[in-house]
């Protein structure tokens, strides 16, 4: 009988007796978010694809990048501080970004992937936090409780993006006016509010507001069915969070490539 001397509880950073690939999940989360953050910074700070051609619009169409929607200003308003490079995306992107940042799923994921709190289940944490851990009990993370306000904004954004998808069905014609049509870009843009809806309507705050806050739901069949439907989406919340996030990036990329003339939008109808 061989024996090995180890303390029962060592707890140093990364220490664990787990033998599976426990580091894979936090690593993928880290890389996934880093990729998206990197791309969205690029997209926000690269508004122009030619001297007069913005990257968020495609000539000959009504396509608009979701990262720039709603397009409030096309150039810097007079009150914009000169030392900050202007991008129309900055005026609106804080809302969807705040929604995702305060989302219960994202919180749990980035606390692991970015802050190692914990790095992974039953894996030792960096020692410096120790007993000083505050969690979401105190400032700053207590602010995560405003999530439902971002949800309200996100619902407004779904309406705006639905409007954008509708606009993408109309193509300007040379003499003025517009004709109905469908391009590959149109189809891509229609997918956007749908996926965002699948994500946002599976939100935990939405699940609470729609019925979860009540102890008795059986009295109203509408409440009960809405709650069950939201609960169903909620089970897949993580999946829709990732898909809808990368999809938004993908739509921006498609429009950007069309705007730059790298690819030409395929006109189907």
């Amino acid at each position: 009988m061989a024996s090995i001397d180890v303390p029962l509880k060592d707890g140093g950073f990364g220490s664990t007796r787990r033998t599976d690939n426990w580091w894979l999940e936090p690593l993928l989360i880290f890389l996934g978010y880093a990729l998206f953050l990197g791309y969205s910074n690029y997209a926000v700070f690269t508004p122009m694809c030619g001297p007069t051609q913005p990257c968020y619009e495609v000539p000959g169409t009504n396509y608009l990048s979701p990262m720039y929607s709603p397009l409030l200003f096309t150039s810097a308003p007079s009150w914009w501080p000169g030392f900050i490079p202007f991008s129309a995306a900055m005026l609106i992107l804080w809302a969807p970004a705040g929604f995702r940042f305060t989302c219960y799923y994202y919180r749990g994921a980035y606390y692991k992937g970015f802050w190692a709190d914990p790095l992974s289940c039953a894996v030792g944490e960096p020692g410096f936090r120790g007993k000083n851990y505050r969690g979401e009990r105190k400032f700053p993370l207590i602010m995560q409780n405003i999530h439902r306000y971002f949800l309200y904004l996100a619902i407004v954004f779904i309406v705006l993006l639905t409007w954008d998808a509708w606009r993408a069905l109309w193509f300007p014609v040379a003499g003025g006016g517009e004709v109905f049509g469908i391009g590959l870009g149109t189809l891509i843009m229609i997918g956007n509010p749908i996926l965002l809806g699948l994500y946002a309507f599976g939100c935990h705050s939405f699940r609470h507001l729609i019925g979860g806050r009540k102890d008795v739901m059986s009295g109203s069949s509408v409440t009960k069915s809405c709650y069950d439907c939201v609960s169903h989406l909620n089970k897949n919340h993580m999946k829709w969070a990732w898909i809808s996030m990368f999809y938004v990036g993908g739509v921006d990329l498609y429009i950007r490539l069309c705007a730059a003339g790298t690819i030409t939008d395929l006109r189907i109808l």
Binding site: R107, G108, Y111, K112, C121, A122, G135, E136, R137
Partner: peptide, 14 residues
């Protein structure tokens, strides 16, 4: 102090 929970879901997993 439910606020200490940072919803990292290890409890659910085990």
């Amino acid at each position: 102090n439910i606020g200490y929970c940072n919803i990292t879901k290890c409890c659910t997993k085990v």
